[in-house]
Write a protein that binds this DNA or RNA. Sequence first.
DNA 1: AGCGTTTTAGCAAGCGCTTTCTATATAGGG
DNA 2: CCCTATATAGAAAGCGCTTGCTAAAACGCT
Lengths: 349, 349
Amino acid sequence: MTVTLADVAARAQVSPATVSRVLNGNYPVAASTRERVLKAVDELDYVLNGPASALAAATSDLVGILVNDIADPFFGIMASAIQAEIGGPGGRAGGERLAVVCNTGGSPERELTYLTLLQRQRAAAVVLTGGAIEDAEHQAAMDAKVRKLTEAGTRVVLCGRPPAPDTGAIALTFDNRGGGQELTEHLIGLGHRRLGYIAGPEERTTTRHRLEGHRAALAAHGIEEDPRWTVHGRYDRRSGYEATLELMRRDPSLTAVVAANDSVALGACAALRDSGLRIPEDVSVAGFDDLPFSIDAVPSLTTVRLPLADAGARAGRIAMGREEAPPGGIASVRGELMVRGSAGTPRAS
Amino acid sequence: MTVTLADVAARAQVSPATVSRVLNGNYPVAASTRERVLKAVDELDYVLNGPASALAAATSDLVGILVNDIADPFFGIMASAIQAEIGGPGGRAGGERLAVVCNTGGSPERELTYLTLLQRQRAAAVVLTGGAIEDAEHQAAMDAKVRKLTEAGTRVVLCGRPPAPDTGAIALTFDNRGGGQELTEHLIGLGHRRLGYIAGPEERTTTRHRLEGHRAALAAHGIEEDPRWTVHGRYDRRSGYEATLELMRRDPSLTAVVAANDSVALGACAALRDSGLRIPEDVSVAGFDDLPFSIDAVPSLTTVRLPLADAGARAGRIAMGREEAPPGGIASVRGELMVRGSAGTPRAS
DNA sequence: AGCGTTTTAGCAAGCGCTTTCTATATAGGG
DNA sequence: CCCTATATAGAAAGCGCTTGCTAAAACGCT
């Protein structure tokens, strides 16, 4: 029915072992032999049986990429950088890996299940992206799973995610705390003293770190935070819109709104504009991430640029063993403050 | 080292065959036996060896989803609907399928390579999303590959993609032509006679179909199209911005700009606004797709809603054999005109 | 020419599961 | 109480590949 290695071997007048070796290219085969084999492969339109190969070799060419929300460009950019680096199609020589992205939708169960599925597939590596979920039980389960994976020889790298100590995973963490602090200090430097903050969902590490940075900046400048100044929402535009309305209702004297990310910031801009407020003359707005649309916004968004594509590419290379892991298995990647039009000096009031 | 089926069998005092059967649940096993086995599985923390299983069963639980651009919400929404339906983690009983998305980046080679990789993995099904590439040679290669997949028992479904006749693939096509026509007719009904059109990349079927619809509407109303009124770009915001500037430079008397999709339309809005033109008082703008951000835009976008999530879910069910394929293996899904604020009556002039 | 090396290729033993076929209990009917 | 259905479990033969080991051929020395 389907053509197998043996068929190719017969046609090329060699043993199956030889065919396997030319296909894997990890063993010397005479040029003339190789050519004959390749010709047979081509003529028979042979496609290697992945499962059989993975079984015999005790490892597959599958690499999994876990993302929280596939429809969010934050993850899209990282995933596509990782995928490009991992090779797969269009990759470098021998790069026939299947890089696949799995969408957890931010659900703890799905996160875990995907990890199990990948483990079952004997994935060669897995990259986990984005903030983790702050739930002790879930984190323990994740860590146990990750440890099991690394022990079984699967390389696990965390990209834009906090380190998982003692699991064997390599972490490329974004310095959300530092970025958040720098951003808020910029606003304070501009003269703002009354700053609203729209945080992400409470259970995500990213949310907490960015908020901590913001508060550290306030504290460093002796600004006492009013509890009314912080609201939690989701990481999307609509949530930013609603949260901003709420914020301005609670305290109309705010002169700046710092958003958990750029989408939220855009929602904030829309809400302010709909309230008849000008940006940045009446209220300044700042975002986080510097996604591609942020510079196009009117006014363009002051934000913290996270090197998503670079970090993704690096994570991909580490996952492939093509780049050395950072010392201690942990690296913190800083964001870069992008000063643009959405934040200015506060209104006189 | 790693625990195998045999270990579980030994622990549960049954044969490996029995363990396999309780795991697959496709053969009667006494309740007491099943329980014993499940207990052993749990105690040993056993994870099935996917490749071995796939080899023996001659099929895997992998399902591939091909997308053109993972960072584009258009694909993100479809992919996430497909993935949800296919089950995988969090799916229905027995739904332990691994639904993975593969990002082709719009490249023909990668498209083909991913298909081969999926074929190699003996994927249970594959879903191809989004417009196809209009290149006879590439399409022939794709069709051949798809035929090979369906012949090997892999279900192939096309979601938002033109049918591939005689390949055994099932198509859920969006009626881009009809949607494009309806949209432009709406604008014409509003009184517009001078309409610019920002098309997508020339080589995509989606681009051609939408443009054909637009032109059909013009023709139906006896409007002769000026060659200056059409420019081609990419499917992103920046491209829309630039194209709009070009369009207005070519013919400042245009009263409406129809964009290939919503991102492009948003870019168009920004360009018009930056040119000092009001929307829709001076120039009307229309998009396509109705992505979530379109209703949030100011003014909200008049556009054609494509049922991305519904179509994705349906494609997923068909791929899983859980829903019957449409008659003839082809279904055309209509979009719905969303009349909103970005398009109004043309300015007097 | 003889011998040790180095290349190159084949043999065959699995990898860990599924599944057909067969065997053994158990139950039901006369 | 025996005989035939029926339910349940096991034996064993692969699935198609990889790879350690071995063998043969080719090469370079002395």
